[in-house]
Amino acid sequence: MNILEARDITKTYVIGETGVPVIDKVSLGIPEGQFAVIQGRSGSGKTTLLTLLSGLDKPTSGTIFIKDKDITLLKEDALAPLRNEFFGFVFQSFHLVPSLTALENVMFPAELKNSSKNMKDALHRAESLLKRVDLTKRAGNYPHQLSGGEKQRVAICRALINNPRIIFADEPTGNLDSVSGEAILNLLTDIQEEYRATIVLVTHSIEVAGLADRIVTLEDGRVIEDRSPGTAEKKN
């Protein structure tokens, strides 16, 4: 059963008077609990595909279903609860709210979800998540006081706070050194097992792709390969 399914999606950007297709008739189903990697060269359209799958942007044509619901029909505010409860995001540039501490950043989605209710639970959960990533001592620090690896761990904790069903990660190790990057990848795989979350991860790194259940390769906005590691399934 696919938790996420894109059917024939196309995304075209109009530059001047010319339409440039960035995603070209892509169909993709992600089963629940899968760790799927989307890879490709720079400019292949992998980040655009991630933004479409996660509802951050709308395709020019085609449909995207999240558990039988077509999210391309939803308005911006209707997508908000989906992003808050169903999805978790991890970005290459971390995108932590600069004015909030690490703990406050982690708690933020929970606070949005629960308003002022059950804040104690949210606090405990945020603290335990930070503990899980060895950041208990950094909970009171602001983003600019954290290293890249620490920021990304905070971002992962924030992505997990509401127990999302799908985590979208865009080049999560792109801004990190190899040691920090490896630690983040290990964390993501651990999390996938621990929380049984579905992960859709965009990367251009072959090492990262090696950890996935499935590798989708893009080129010029089209899926040219969709396979499990160690297998090869070419798609025309």
Partner: peptide, 19 residues
């Protein structure tokens, strides 16, 4: 730019435009 960043972060994390 800082406000846009905040607004985007809020929206990514599930906040509505009203928020």
């Amino acid at each position: 730019s800082a406000r846009i960043r905040e607004a985007v972060y809020y929206k990514i994390l599930g906040a509505t435009s009203g928020f």
